[in-house]
Design a binder for these strands. Structure first.
Length: 276
DNA sequence: GCGGGTGTTCACGC
DNA sequence: CGCGTGAACACCCG
């Protein structure tokens, strides 16, 4: 799925192109894409509601509506949101189409059908278990070295990579960026979080911000399915230093060769030379 | 046919 | 309770 930088890229695109418009209709071809939401309720909720803002929490897009409702969209592994013309063909994997008051359409495509759309009252969003259980946004003031230290001391037997993937610790990091962040911070993904030094925690904190910032600036990583709102690929893959680079020399030119292991069931790439 | 893939969740065993 | 593993979801690709 798209991780924070990809979802943020889509959010920025949506903010530019649909805020201020009204939603006019919704067509649902695959009802199981709706989570805790009835198709007729969704149609009623969004009909003629104005989109007042597009927010993001972790990897989830939040369409804020003037009617007091929020539409949550999770793209999971292969979901895409596409801003389309009315005459554009409907793809095989388009499962939901939102109509917009300017005549354009928002297609939700998802080859693997893991993603979901959920409607809830904006005032109840704080009670939503997915949203409420999420750790701080990396770019918020809550994300500090002290916070990492506090959360990491409780995880004595875990591996740092697994903890970075835990959305309740930090919101938005996935398999690509966990590896890129750990490489930038020179920390081996198998390390135990509770024994990291103050310097390592600070390096991890800074690397998180730097890698995510650079990825957003390059409009995310497209190695397979991810595209932005207009269907274009992101440009960050060419900046990847470890992810999917098994057997290649470390970009730090330190004589290390990128290794691939499994952590938390996920392929994990790192340089044994510079990541300690 | 098999394994693996940007995510998440659950069952199970230690 | 914490943590790791494997499976599940569904589909494409090499």
């Amino acid at each position: 799925m798209p991780e924070l930088p990809e979802v943020e890229t889509v959010r920025l695109d949506l903010q530019r192109s649909i805020v201020g418009l009204k939603l006019t209709s919704v067509e649902i071809f695959l009802p199981k894409m709706l989570k805790d939401t009835q198709a007729e309720d969704l149609a009623h909720i969004l009909k003629d509601a104005k989109i007042t803002a597009v927010d993001r929490r972790g990897k989830i897009i939040l369409l804020r509506l003037s009617s007091g409702y929020t539409i949550m969209i999770h793209l999971k592994m292969s979901g895409q949101l596409l801003y389309m013309d009315a005459e554009d063909p409907i793809g095989k994997w388009t499962h939901i189409i939102f109509g917009l008051s300017n005549g354009h359409l928002l297609h939700l495509r998802d080859q693997r059908q893991f993603g979901y759309v959920k409607a809830l009252k904006t005032e109840d969003a704080g009670n939503d278990t997915t949203l409420a259980g999420m750790g701080p946004e990396p770019f918020s003031t809550d994300f500090t070295v002290a916070y990492l230290k506090d959360r990491f001391t409780r995880r004595k037997k875990a591996k740092i990579k697994a903890v970075l993937l835990d959305q309740s610790v930090i919101a938005g990091i996935g398999n690509i960026y966990a590896d890129e962040i750990l490489h930038e911070a020179r920390i081996k993904p198998t390390r135990s979080p509770d024994v990291l030094t103050r310097q390592e925690l600070a390096a991890l904190h800074d690397a998180t911000l730097e890698i995510l910032r650079a990825a957003i600036e390059n409009r995310g990583s497209s190695f397979s399915k991810y595209v932005d709102l207009s269907g274009k690929q992101g440009g960050y893959v060419k900046h990847h230093r470890v992810y999917r680079r098994e057997g290649e020399p470390c970009f730090r030119d330190d004589g290390g060769t990128i290794k691939r292991i499994k952590i938390a069931g996920r392929s994990t790439f790192y340089c044994p030379k510079c990541q300690k």
